[in-house]
């Protein structure tokens, strides 16, 4: 596994984790009205405890002469950025249209909800970006010596 793949796996896991953490936080604060206040702190601590091994995993090289990235990596990253960029625009368009059907033409929406929506779009874009990288490398790439 090269550095681009490792980075993509890290972003994929981190974005998925943050989405789940966000759902948990939203449920805890908005729906359950702060019933389990210590739960989100525990999950946040768990996230930070993974940072050190994650950093070591990212920096570990396949060989001493391994390059940071090469021409194929750059091509794959370029395509992944394009895919996530298109997805961001689709999601933004959906965000502009969907609330109209939920709250109506004259309805209102909380300011914090807009911030949350933007943050979720960012996370989903990161998820799509990393998934696009991994798909291009091949999910089941054996990565073995031939």
């Amino acid at each position: 596994m090269n550095r681009t793949q490792k980075g993509a796996w890290c972003i994929l896991i981190a974005s998925l984790f943050l989405i789940l953490f966000g759902i948990l936080l939203f449920t805890e604060i908005v729906i359950l009205k702060n019933l389990f206040t210590s739960l989100h702190r525990f999950v946040a601590l768990l996230l930070f405890s993974f940072m050190v091994p994650l950093f070591i995993f990212l920096r570990k090289k396949q060989s001493t002469a391994e390059v940071e990235s090469d021409e194929r990596d750059r091509l794959i990253i370029k395509r992944a950025i394009l895919v996530s960029f298109v997805c961001v625009w689709i999601m933004l368009a959906a965000v502009c249209i969907i609330p109209r059907f939920i709250v109506g033409y004259t309805g209102s929406i909380a300011v914090w909800a807009l911030s949350l929506i933007n943050f979720v779009i960012f996370l989903v874009a990161m998820f799509i970006y990393s998934a696009a990288i991994l798909v291009q490398y091949g999910w089941r790439d054996k990565d073995g010596e031939k």
Binding site: M1, N2, R3, T4, Q5, Q62, S63, A65, E66, V67, S69, D70, E71, R72, D73, Y137, D141, D143, E145, K146
Partner: peptide, 15 residues
């Protein structure tokens, strides 16, 4: 090996 060739030409083994 693929790794040796990759190191010589300056790309990753995956390439």
């Amino acid at each position: 090996t693929q790794q040796q060739l990759a190191d010589k030409v300056g790309v990753t083994r995956q390439t």
